[in-house]
Design a protein around this nucleic acid. Sequence first.
DNA 1: TTGTCTTTGTTCATTTTCTGAACTTAGCTG
DNA 2: CAGCTAAGTTCAGAAAATGAACAAAGACAA
Lengths: 377, 377
Amino acid sequence: MLTSSQQQLLRVISQSGPSSRTVLAASMGLSKAAMSGIARDLISLGVLRETETIYGQGRPSILLDLHPEGAFFVGVSLLEDPAPLVLSDFNGNIIARQTMPLSRDPDAIAEMIADTLPKLLAEQERADGKLSGIGVALSGFVDEKQANCVKSTLLGWQDVPLAGIIRQKTGIDTFIENDAKAVAVSEKLFGSARDVQNFSVVSFGNGIGCAHFVGGKLYRGNHGGAGEIAHCTIEPNGSPCRCGKRGCLDTVASLKAIKEMAKAEGLACHSLKDLETEASIGNAAAIRILHRAGSALGLAIAHLIQFNDPGLILITHVEGHFDGLFGTVMRQAAEANVLPRYAGQTPIRTRRVDGDVWARGAASIAAHNFLIGSTPY
Amino acid sequence: MLTSSQQQLLRVISQSGPSSRTVLAASMGLSKAAMSGIARDLISLGVLRETETIYGQGRPSILLDLHPEGAFFVGVSLLEDPAPLVLSDFNGNIIARQTMPLSRDPDAIAEMIADTLPKLLAEQERADGKLSGIGVALSGFVDEKQANCVKSTLLGWQDVPLAGIIRQKTGIDTFIENDAKAVAVSEKLFGSARDVQNFSVVSFGNGIGCAHFVGGKLYRGNHGGAGEIAHCTIEPNGSPCRCGKRGCLDTVASLKAIKEMAKAEGLACHSLKDLETEASIGNAAAIRILHRAGSALGLAIAHLIQFNDPGLILITHVEGHFDGLFGTVMRQAAEANVLPRYAGQTPIRTRRVDGDVWARGAASIAAHNFLIGSTPY
DNA sequence: TTGTCTTTGTTCATTTTCTGAACTTAGCTG
DNA sequence: CAGCTAAGTTCAGAAAATGAACAAAGACAA
């Protein structure tokens, strides 16, 4: 186990990137002497390594960075069938891959993971003995300890202590997390939000997920529900939603909703891109649908900015398409609905992610816990 | 200056209320031995004191609490003319009061504060030598260090380093903060949100302000704009707002907006209460106005819940009135627009505050900084 | 009343962690 | 090449926290 100073150092480096001992000492409020010792220990543990040397006036400084092979994590996505398991290094690189059949039985899941784990590790010898955690991403609400699934409609669960079950079967520290929150964590640790303290990730797909980072930490909300923007009312008295309300963002702007609206209009579009193509050649229905969806998403994002003033909005998508009408309208609506003096202040970035998002997100949850540990006061 | 452990202890007590040494040691992750010493020091400094004795099995435990006279703070509100200055003890009790003419000139303000300070302190000898900070509440945006006013339309300021100027003139540590955020801090430190980690305070008045606490800390947002719900679009294509957009919450639900709507309808109502009375005797226009305002505020609060999942929404108001139609509709709209499975999970509390809110809020900013100090990593 | 039990809080020697100051290292500068 | 600058190390000493033993204060049962 690492000391709290060691953990803190890892955390700082993971947030601010490779830095010299002197810089790190200053940003942690420690003396150079203390830093020297802590760094020495972590290097000899194989968790840190010296990378670039920066030449300037005086003695050159040597940057310290996380050693990609300092720790390995397993990520499991329970959002797909078969469920992917990936082995990730400390940089978020996926270095091995397996799948297992998806089950709704927690014990069966734990069993399957325990069975698949050796196969996964066998692919990469260098991970031997350095597996530092398992993360599981699922659709649903997870408690603060990232141990129990409070509720998952998709899996039909209520108060399932999945993390504990897996930990018991595998002997490895395990944490579970909501899908959107897992993606946010992976963007913070491994992705394009490393150096941003406050940001929100919107994961755009058949559903719309969202998660917030506040002060460099994942903000889960009081019931683990922070970021559930899919069911905010965006069209008062709009179409009914499966949640029981009307006019939820989900009914207008999710990929599923867009496809359904297209189908209802008799359009033979099987993807957002198809619909964009239709719109670009002047199909009124396609334009109407994209406009409506874009406005809705843009308005929700504007609310997000107005309410939380994040430093970045990151929209991740697997099969989205933000270069056309949809994206343009979304951005315009977002700009038009924030305080004019704020407009343009908050970057809205879209990012296409590969099919490994969920599994990588899951792995990042394990990494996040390795870095944060049992959070101090 | 206090050590970081001492500060931490004060913070924990201020959050969780009076506790025994053993409990405190556990919740701070320290040994009883360490706690014993830290507590002894703080008691002899006059910052902590032993209060109740709890009898159970074994040796009785003695609760430690902040000593109300352990530190004193001055709060200045630049929201009123004349501007009130209050002297507050460590419990948020206002023990002295002065006023000074409001000015737009930072130097003049600092001068006035420096002049008024002795008079304020003269009222209460026990505060002698224990004045630990000055807080200033103002309408506008404040930077992260709570030192510079980035922008205040009301005061006509842009990048004014007010805190530094006052600090220089008075020799006392000074921090400035946005009005709504100051109120939130005072609710956290002194009010009804002491033990809630995540909550939002909506200050309802001629304008609508809001501020969030996340993880027990004030969340300021990336540009200090977190919580600016007044200008979120609540009625798409609604009435124009002075901010340049349309349909902002501020144009429908603020006290000012309600009064203006009443006036426009030819109603002779000078307060929300008058309007409620009108509505209660069946005045259609009054009912319409209250309904519209309540729905708007309720929807905004629903968004707040849906986006951030706070543990509490606290609505503070000086001359509001939430027992009538307005309040009822507001609550209904809030419930109706959150995920049904969440409805009712987030308490929405209204709280009438006295005219000292802003000044007390300002003082609490100083207290907050005394407790948090220069925040560690 | 009295001894036992339970739990809080203190004491103190010891260990861990951090600091300050002096020093070494390594490259720029002229 | 000497002189300068800044990074990183070393080491004695200070500061903070620990663990174990112990004193304190009441509950409880005989």
